[in-house]
Design a binder for these strands. Structure first.
Lengths: 121, 121
DNA sequence: CTCTATGCAAAAACTTTGCAGGGAT
DNA sequence: ATCCCTGCAAAGTTTTTGCATAGAG
């Protein structure tokens, strides 16, 4: 299983909490906030935040704030971008149409904000 | 002066605090956080946040979280996007090369995250 | 066995709210 | 004169930290 290797590569110990987090995020189809997750988590919030922070340092997970002013976390899978609707606040993952290299900048991540298809009709 | 009109258009009273905020943001060349601003502000933080919130509702100001986990505020000028560097955490404003309309979505704002020119050399 | 990770509780950081007085229209 | 805006203080929310114990390698 790749979770074990992922963690050992980064010199992180394989613990129940980390396994749980990585399993949740690797099967999630959208970014998740702590608030959405907390009821199903078996770990303390301190452990959640400490591990998320560790995962961010190791570029395993990334994070952004949505329009509801909450942080959403997502595992770094194949490059894709996010669209946050200013009206319904829904977050959609989109295939990135952008080049990952633009005028000397390397683009790792794109967040679009605007009006989604549904709200726009 | 356009600040007066801007506020009366939105049915907001012209107060010292609002004038101060709009003057700061309309002359700023980059997004600013409360932390960066607080020493030069003559208003209470409650007033700051209440007005920012009001301005966001009225689409006068918009806000995003940067890599330092702080919220940055900026006046809505001509459309442009932001590049946040994952290494130096610097925020750059960029001319938007994207269309503002993409596959049924209306794009109001774009945040790119990645590695900036300077860190990339 | 050693060093890292965890839970709990407490603190810190950031933002919002209640209320009474002040100011804009 | 009316209603909105403000400061202050207090509370709310989210995230971080200290410390003692548990657990992984």
């Amino acid at each position: 299983m790749q979770i074990k290797e992922l963690l050992s590569d980064k010199k992180l110990k394989l613990t129940t909490a980390r396994k749980e987090l990585l399993e949740i995020f690797s099967t999630a189809h959208k970014p998740l906030s702590y608030e959405e997750l907390k009821s199903e988590l078996s770990m303390d919030k301190a452990t959640f935040y400490r591990n998320i922070s560790r995962f961010e340092d190791e570029s395993i997970i990334n994070c952004f704030e949505s329009n509801d002013k909450k942080r959403y976390y997502e595992i770094q899978k194949k490059p894709h971008s996010h669209f946050i609707c200013n009206l319904c606040n829904n977050i959609e993952c989109m295939k990135t149409t952008n080049n990952t290299y633009m005028d000397g900048y390397i683009i790792k991540d794109v967040i679009y904000k605007g009006i989604c298809k549904i709200c726009n009709t």
